[in-house]
Amino acid sequence: MHKYEAEKLLKILFNVWSKQSSTKWCKENPAKGQCGVTALVVQDLFGGEIFKTPTVGGWHYYNRINGERYDFTESQFSEPIKYLDIPSSREEAFSDTNMSQYSYLRNSVLKAWKNGNFN
C-alpha cells in the first residue's frame, strides 16, 4: 500500500464510518468500535495480515501489509497504543462485528474508492 492510498482510504473511512458499521460510533469519535470491521475491509482491499494488541477496552485489530503496520482506527484511543503485533485472523476480527456491519462498510468503502469520493 502506498502512502497516498493509505491517506485516501483513511479519508474514505472517516466519511463512511457510522452506527451502521459499529454501534459504538459517535460523531466525536468516529473510529470508536470500528477496528475489527475496518481490519477486515482493509484486508479485502489490500491483502496482508490482521494483527491484534490488547487495550483497556479489549482486543484492538489492525493490519500489516508488506511488512508495514496500518492502524486506521488508532484515533479512537486517547493514549498511544503499545502494539504487541500478535497474529490474528478474520474469524477473530469478525468477533468484533457482524455481517451487516461488515457488508455496509465494505460496500461503502468500495463505492467511494471506485467513485473517487475521498474528500
Rank of each mutant, 00 (worst) to 15 (best):
N107Q: 12
S88K: 06
K52E: 12
D85C: 06
W113R: 01
Y102I: 05
T73N: 06
N15H: 11
C26Q: 14
E74C: 09
N15C: 08
S100K: 08
I65W: 11
W25S: 00
L10H: 06
F77G: 02
S18R: 04
S78L: 11
V41R: 02
Y4R: 03
S103D: 15
W17S: 03
E79T: 08
P30R: 06
T73Q: 04
C26K: 09
M1R: 06
F77I: 04
A31Y: 01
F46T: 04
D85A: 07
N29F: 12
Y70K: 04
S75K: 10
A39Q: 05
G33I: 06
F118L: 07
N115Y: 12
R64F: 13
G47D: 13
L9P: 04
V37R: 04
G47M: 11
E7M: 11
H60W: 10
F94G: 00
K3A: 15
V16F: 11
H2C: 01
Q20E: 15
V56W: 02
E79A: 11
Q76R: 04
I50Y: 10
K19M: 14
T53V: 13
Y62Q: 07
F118Y: 15
E74Y: 09
Q101T: 03
E7S: 09
W113T: 04
G67M: 09
Y4D: 13
S103Y: 09
Q101S: 14
Y61S: 00
G116R: 06
M99E: 15
S108T: 00
E49K: 07
P87R: 05
L105W: 01
S88P: 05
Y61K: 00
D96V: 01
A112T: 08
F14G: 04
R69D: 15
L84V: 02
I86Q: 14
L40R: 03
L9I: 14
E7L: 13
K32S: 14
S89E: 13
G57N: 12
R106A: 12
P54K: 09
T97K: 01
W17K: 02
S78K: 07
E28P: 01
R106F: 12
K19P: 02
E5H: 05
G33M: 06
S100C: 09
L10W: 00
E5A: 14
W17N: 03
P54F: 14
G58I: 05
Q76L: 09
Y70G: 01
Y102K: 02
N98R: 03
K114V: 12
Y102H: 07
H60S: 10
L40Y: 10
T97H: 01
K111T: 15
G33F: 11
K19G: 05
G57R: 07
K24C: 09
Q101H: 13
K11P: 00
K24I: 02
S108R: 09
P87D: 08
